[in-house]
Design a protein around this nucleic acid. Sequence first.
DNA 1: ACCTGCATGTAAGTCGTTACATGATTGA
DNA 2: TCAATCATGTAACGACTTACATGCAGGT
Lengths: 180, 180
Amino acid sequence: MARSSQTQMAVLGALSIEPMTAYALREAIRDVLGHFWSESFGQIYPTLHALEEEGHVRRRDGARARSSIFEITATGTARLIELLSEPPQETPARNGLMLRLFFGRTLGRDRCRELLLSTRKVAESRLTEYEELLTRLEAEEGHLPDWPFIRITIRAGIHHSRSTIAWVDESLDALSGGPS
Amino acid sequence: MARSSQTQMAVLGALSIEPMTAYALREAIRDVLGHFWSESFGQIYPTLHALEEEGHVRRRDGARARSSIFEITATGTARLIELLSEPPQETPARNGLMLRLFFGRTLGRDRCRELLLSTRKVAESRLTEYEELLTRLEAEEGHLPDWPFIRITIRAGIHHSRSTIAWVDESLDALSGGPS
DNA sequence: ACCTGCATGTAAGTCGTTACATGATTGA
DNA sequence: TCAATCATGTAACGACTTACATGCAGGT
């Protein structure tokens, strides 16, 4: 239930795909889940130790103790399924862009336009990124059992970016005409 | 700059539209900004007091001291513009839905379908809500100078909900065929 | 007399980030 | 040998939420 189960979920999930060190874990979370998830450094180590004590992960000790590779255990997999089955808990909404636009009269039309333009730029580059990622992974990992699910998350990014771009264009139109 | 400027922005922004009590402020933030912003109770009072000390808001004292109506001052407006002009700071991504779908192989196809269906349901009811809100406010407040900006934020909700629905439908299609 | 809603606040605790501190390994 | 990267951890701090505590006003 409570107790930062969110971080546990991300850590166990990553290890369920492939065993790795804490350091690699952090990079995997940043690079692979980065588009929709983040964990800070200071969370990963304590969580990993807690999971180890509970027997949900274990060290697969190769020669050196200096860098331990963690792998998920059977109870860890059970725990992961349990966590994944909990309803996603919404983080409190905090959209700085919308807040600024909402008070756009005070901020001024020009600043709003700039905000919208830079939002568009970000959305466009994300869109390209997602599309390339999809093509590349489709070829490299298209046969893996995880792929259909990974694909869904990338498609979400694509849909979202496109809708952002459309909304920005509409909004810029709405803001033109009339002075500052 | 730092120091929970986000909360200050929301508070000053709300007061820039209309003076009100702390209590009303909390309700306004929940009801009006609720779709993209949230402030907890325990934040609003301290922030309001801090803003008062800095002279950015003042109490407009009617008869009773028991409920003070706060209004924004000239320096408060300046401060608000300053805050609104700062680039929106991204909150670290934490999308529980995507995390669960990403590990969908472990979670299981059926659970993923359920998740998607309930996401669709939420998106549909949001969409209806936004559309009704837009119609209603267009009539009631369509003439106010704040309206074009408020409208943009509602349209964002509409675009976003629609794109979510389209993505869900696509994903459900992708998940059908093949067993659990 | 009582309940609901308006109104104001505080305290404790969680969650999470950032910065700091340390050291091994590897390649140039 | 020196820099970059891999690797592990802690400590301090900040942001935010929840629960608690209090009391008034107005309607039934």
